[in-house]
Design a protein around this nucleic acid. Structure first.
Length: 567
DNA sequence: GCCGTTTTCGGCCCGACTGTTTTCAGTCG
């Protein structure tokens, strides 16, 4: 049970209490406890009840609830509420624009209990006819249902990675185990977690898996060599394939690239697939490419249709890697909605080998996130000056940079005065509200922000949340062209929830000479590690070290920022 | 349910935006 698991349970309890007409103040207590616990930098499962009650918004009842969740993984009260609620009604919370009140109306007035019911009611116009609903809401529901259906059965790369790693460790007693498939290719969204086991005893592998709690086999899809099923509590499919030693390496290659990549032909007319099947066992993947007469492509880039074109122009070593990162520029602290102080975050950044840490807390429009007023910006910058003075006094070559994540308002302007904007080393400009826009409106809004001379970095360009929210449509070429013209860096938001901008646009951005910054958008120390996911996505798109903004060393970064401010 | 006292009750409560309205409820970050 992580803090966010516990917070999710408290939030869901609040929603279901609301759905079942609970006491409004009790509902608010659960919901605000969840909100404030989200900012607590300690592990909730490790706290005693007496310690928990000292936290803001936590009294005896919620402290006991947190303990119960920590100890049992469940909250009896939530289980009771869930038992009274059709699962399809709970699914409706995933539709953006539907909250408790509207879901309650749909359930009670139209008797809607499944997403299928909801679609039928929307298609037949019955939803628009309810008081408080209308044509636009009905269309929004249908659009959201279509998006959710298209994402069904997928999980984010971070969850897939955890599941795959866990299975690999558990299976390792049976022999050599390798993660293959989409996880090895670092797909941003995964529908099948696949692993290969090297063994001459497929029966032993199958019986091990069938004795595994948390996995359920789909017998119809399985064979003696291929166990297929799914992880309990998740829609994602799991495939565990057993191969003898003399087939293992070639299968690992074949199962780590999409078909379009495997049927690429070399100068002799032979495809990668043909070579892989003919090559003698235990040859490295590089040998398969070499014997086909094609340049080597790293697994994460194999789903990129431009991979071979990229590999003919660059070396694999040109690709950005974790070790090349020198700093980080988009992060939050306790000044806005982060869990840790600037000092804690900066020290952690040092610990993981970086030489600069940029703070970019929220601006006033993000009031829900405790965005900073002009006055609080002055105080924060004084604190940063002090931290930097302390590092310098200790002879530590590390710098905290003064940034902001300034909201892009509806008209494309930023929400600080020019005087405040000029006090930062750099400005990350991001859209956080009014996300529902046409492509024309969204593009015009971003273009105005890019043209602002104070904008240094364009934050999460489309506002998407993988598997949950599509993001507003933008004219990517126009946005990238404008960034090139105005020397604006584009963020690759490294949060596994976002990975925005999409890796498919990296090549175009590079061709225009645009810098790309791998930004963790960290709200806690460990959030800095999300840059790993950003690196995976960046490598998919072929991002090179020399175009990665935060691969710039500290000295170069300071010069670049200074020059950029002078225009 | 939590909090903070004018201390065991009485008051809690972000604000912009959207889609629905015709003055505002519901949603969201």
């Amino acid at each position: 049970m992580t803090n966010s698991d516990i917070i999710d349970i408290l939030e869901q309890t609040a929603k279901l209490l609301d759905l079942h007409d609970g006491d409004p103040f009790r509902i608010r207590a659960f919901s605000s406890a969840a909100f404030s616990l989200d900012k607590v930098p300690v592990s909730l499962t490790e706290q005693y009840v007496a310690e928990l009650t000292k936290l803001p918004g936590v009294g005896k009842t919620i402290a006991n609830a947190v303990r119960e969740i920590g100890d049992t993984g469940h909250l009896a009260e939530l289980d009771g509420l869930l038992a009274q609620t059709p699962p399809g009604v709970i699914d409706m919370f995933r539709i953006k624009g539907l909250g408790v009140k509207k879901i309650k109306t749909l359930w009670q007035e139209l008797g809607i209990e499944t997403l299928r019911d909801l679609r039928q009611a929307s298609e037949s116009g019955r939803v628009a006819a309810i008081k408080g609903f209308g044509e636009k809401m009905q269309k929004n529901i249908l659009d959201n249902l279509a998006f959710l259906e298209s994402q069904a059965g997928k999980i984010r790369m971070d969850k897939a990675d955890r599941l795959a790693t866990q299975l690999r460790d558990e299976l390792s007693s049976l022999g050599r185990v390798e993660i293959s498939g989409q996880v090895r290719q670092r797909a941003t969204e995964v529908d099948t977690v696949e692993l290969l086991v090297e063994s001459d005893e497929p029966v032993a592998v199958q019986s091990f898996l069938n004795g595994h709690t948390g996995l359920t086999q789909h017998r119809a899809d399985s064979s003696p060599f291929a166990w297929r099923g799914q992880a309990d509590g998740s829609d994602v499919r799991v495939a565990i394939l057993t191969y003898p030693a003399n087939q293992f390496d070639q299968q690992l290659f074949i199962r780590s690239a999409p078909e379009a990549h495997l049927i690429e032909k070399g100068p002799t007319g032979k495809t990668l697939l043909q070579t892989a099947l003919q090559i003698s066992p235990h040859n490295p993947e590089e040998a398969i490419y070499a014997q086909t007469g094609l340049p080597f492509v790293v697994p994460e880039m194999r789903e990129n249709p431009q991979a071979f074109a990229w590999a003919r122009q660059h070396q694999t070593d040109d690709l950005i890697s974790w070790d090349d990162l020198r700093g980080t520029v988009h992060n939050h602290s306790t000044w806005s909605d982060g869990q840790h102080t600037i000092q804690q975050m900066a020290d952690y950044a040092r610990e993981i080998g970086l030489s600069y840490f940029g703070i970019a807390d929220h601006s006033p429009t993000a009031s829900y996130a405790n965005g900073l007023s002009a006055e609080r910006i002055r105080q924060q910058q004084a604190e940063i000056d002090q931290i930097n003075a302390d590092y310098a006094a200790q002879g530590i070559a590390f710098r905290v940079l003064k940034g902001t994540e300034s909201d892009i308002l509806g008209d494309g302007s930023l929400d600080y005065s020019n005087e405040v904007l000029s006090s930062f080393d750099y400005v990350v400009a991001s859209v956080h509200q009014t996300l529902s826009m046409t492509e024309e409106k969204a593009t015009a809004r971003l273009l105005r922000a890019i043209e602002n001379p104070y904008t240094t970095i364009l934050g999460h360009a489309t506002g998407r949340l993988l598997l949950a929210r599509e993001g507003y449509p933008i004219d990517h070429r126009a946005i990238i062209d404008a960034c090139a013209a105005h020397n604006v860096v584009i963020e690759l938001n490294a949060s596994p929830y976002r990975l925005d901008m999409d890796w498919r646009w990296i090549e175009y951005a590079m061709s225009k000479g645009v810098w790309i910054s791998i930004n963790p958008d960290a709200h806690a120390m460990r959030g800095l590690l999300d840059m790993h996911y950003g690196v995976y996505a960046a490598r998919k798109g072929g991002l090179t070290k020399d175009r990665t903004f935060n691969a710039m060393p500290l000295a170069g970064m300071l010069v670049w920022l200074e020059k950029r401010k002078k225009g």
